[in-house]
Design a protein around this nucleic acid. Structure first.
Lengths: 227, 227
DNA sequence: ATGTGTGAAGAGCTTCACAGCC
DNA sequence: GGCTGTGAAGCTCTTCACACAT
């Protein structure tokens, strides 16, 4: 077995993919780890190492072929064919997601949307009809859904998450700052804005001190935070 | 100088804070690292270590006083008085943020909101009047803003970010999957949904294999992802 | 010359394990 | 007995530095 792949490496694959899509649009067909590092704000070595976990994609003395690399990464991430996403909760956030124009380019397609408000049920947004959340389980089973996005009020999140787990959903992206207590075989990621805001506030209010420290030649105390 | 504080520790402070608020509501006045670890899905040792960077808050044989600990963490994060936040872009996401009921409990207050659509300018949401983004710089300077939230269309993000930087803003939370290329003294965090979705898809589709691995007694290959 | 792939060194973070205090 | 605080060990991820390919 090859040495295990860092979780961080997986997290960088999609940003690489996005950068490569841009490069294709610009007509560039070869890129070095140094140039890509500039674009992504990373060290070139880590880019080479990231790719090396999956194979030898580059040519020494030349660099990487942009479109080959892009396709390779898309395959590693499994984004072809498009991943089918179900959205639960069509409030402001759910609405924004349904209207987000780039999901399909990026490899995702919202194919189901649910809400519990009768005024919303039956409405169609961007080709997706909002359905009654009562039929959640039935509908999830008939479509093969890869990922559920939970955009319901915080109070409803645990109940829905539990229903999703029971239905066999394997991945949940939640907008509730959760401790959703899911079994280990279900992957959950929470978008926790307050935590990110708190972190930003903490570091930005200490920036004065770290500037002083860096004048003294000490090393940076915190790494640059970027998701 | 004390040993440097891990970035990860800072990222856990707010979840601790939130958990402690809940405990207070439940009337609990003492908690051990073991119980808190259970609530937050962490190892007790890391909780003790996290707190130890800031002082000796616990009593051996007893645990931590819930309300003292909560107040201490709130102070470390600098969340009293409330941090003043400016929101740029009142689309669906901006709207959702303005309506989010818990910000003030959590230490944040949106005091300014901007948009460029004349139909929105002048409207009042949750006590905040939407202003013309033309006056961004002037208004930011007159209020003392700790954090800006960027919820504008992707195409507008770089321009606005640049204007914020020029105005002296120190922290930006952006909803555009960005490489915002800001100077180092400005802290930027991007909420990048597609990257998180890609990560979830990657791991959830490989779950079968890691189950097999764990039957063979090998260690987990990826840590649980939770922001 | 230019730029990849990678072992080894280094940095950062977590967990262990236990002394010390309640 | 119960639980904290912490050095040391262990693990993970990043960076260095250079052999090797074009």
């Amino acid at each position: 077995m090859k040495t295990s792949i860092p979780n961080e490496t997986i997290g960088r694959l999609f940003p690489y993919f996005r950068a490569l899509m841009c490069l294709i649009k610009e007509g560039k067909d070869t890129i070095s780890s140094y140039e890509l590092a500039d674009l992504c704000n990373l060290n070139p070595a880590i880019i080479r190492k990231d790719f090396s976990y999956f194979g030898d994609f580059g040519k020494r003395g030349v660099g990487y072929n942009v479109s080959n690399l892009m396709n390779t990464i898309r395959n590693i991430l499994g984004l072809i064919p498009l991943k089918r996403v179900a959205l639960i909760g069509v409030g402001n956030i759910g609405n924004a997601l349904l209207l987000y124009p780039n999901f399909e380019l990026e490899g995702f397609k919202i194919v189901l949307a649910f809400d519990n408000q009768s005024t919303k049920i039956g409405r169609k947004i961007n080709g997706v009809t909002i359905e009654d959340v009562s039929y959640l389980e039935k509908r999830l089973k008939s479509h093969k859904i890869h990922l559920c996005i939970l955009a319901v009020p915080e109070s409803a999140a645990p109940v829905i998450a539990h229903r999703l787990a029971k239905t066999g959903v394997k991945a949940i992206l939640s907008f509730s700052p959760c401790q959703l207590a899911m079994p280990d075989n279900i992957k959950v990621t929470c978008v926790d804005l307050s935590t990110e805001m708190a972190r930003l506030v903490y570091y930005s209010s200490r920036e004065i001190f770290s500037e002083i420290r860096s004048l003294q030649g000490k090393t940076e105390r915190h790494k640059k935070v970027s998701i």
